[in-house]
Simulated assay, not measured.
Amino acid sequence: MLNARSVLVTGSNRGIGLELIRQLLGKSKRPEWVFATCRDPEGPRGQELKGLAAKHHEMKIVPLEATDPSSIQAAATEVTETLQGAGLNLLINNAAIARLSTLESETPEDMSELYKNNTIGPMLVTKAFLPLLRKASQKSPQKGMSCSKAAIVNVSSEGGSITNVLMWDLGHFISYRCSKAALNMLTRCQSLGYSEDEILCIALHPGWVQTDMGSSEAPLTVDASVRAILKTLGHLSEKDNGTFVNWEGSAVPW
């Protein structure tokens, strides 16, 4: 069972990110701190987050632009001050963008922008919050690895699986697929690099979900996807470190 004292979710103003915040706050034993980050909390897309924050003292909205190092550092400083010496147990790198493209229409500009958001962003965010994750791991009495102790969850996609290339017939999304395949490799590297710190690192496919990015035709509701994701995160341990799993915890081929 997931029992993280503190959780941070990027891209939390809509879709899966917003539902993660909502369900974390709805748990009977909710985290002491839920950090909801997004690019523009003051914008129209930040209103639902503000509504949640007004009802839950455990929730803190933190501005974070995942492609801007100074914004990331400012967010890390704010979270560090809020935690007052405690560590961060769970970092969910959820912020991402997608662009419809084919091999013919793909451009260097779009490819660069998607890598910047979907691959480089999670790398920079993780680096900034690594001291807090290490602190959480060191202070935890738990043995081994878990998402309740210290973990990095990179929200990926089976669309980035080189084996499966999910839903090619529905959309080629070249830059999106490439950026998620690269995120998967980053996850593997993180799992090796942070194993001595006992920080669990996972790439997670949330399913094809009914969100702005996923479309209304998707078979999974946001509620069902996130409910299963939180259940899966509660079961992961060191044997899962560096793996690619779906919302139900089943292995996804690289």
Rank of each mutant, 00 (worst) to 15 (best):
A66H: 00
A53D: 14
E48S: 14
G46P: 12
S71Q: 05
P63D: 06
R39I: 01
A66M: 02
E65Q: 08
H56G: 08
A74Y: 00
A66L: 03
I72V: 08
D68C: 06
P31C: 08
G51F: 10
P44R: 13
A36F: 08
E32I: 05
P69M: 04
P63R: 07
K55N: 15
S70N: 10
I72Y: 02
H56M: 06
K27F: 09
G46T: 04
A53T: 05
R39Q: 11
S28R: 15
G43M: 02
E42W: 05
L52K: 06
A74R: 01
E48A: 14
D40I: 06
L49V: 12
H57F: 03
I72L: 05
A54K: 14
A75H: 00
K55F: 11
E32R: 13
M59E: 07
K29Q: 15
A54T: 08
K29E: 15
A75Q: 05
P44H: 12
E65R: 10
T37N: 04
P69G: 05
I72M: 08
S70H: 10
R39L: 09
E32W: 06
P63Q: 12
A75P: 00
G51V: 07
G51C: 08
D68W: 00
A53R: 09
A53S: 14
L49W: 10
A66W: 00
C38K: 01
A66E: 01
W33V: 07
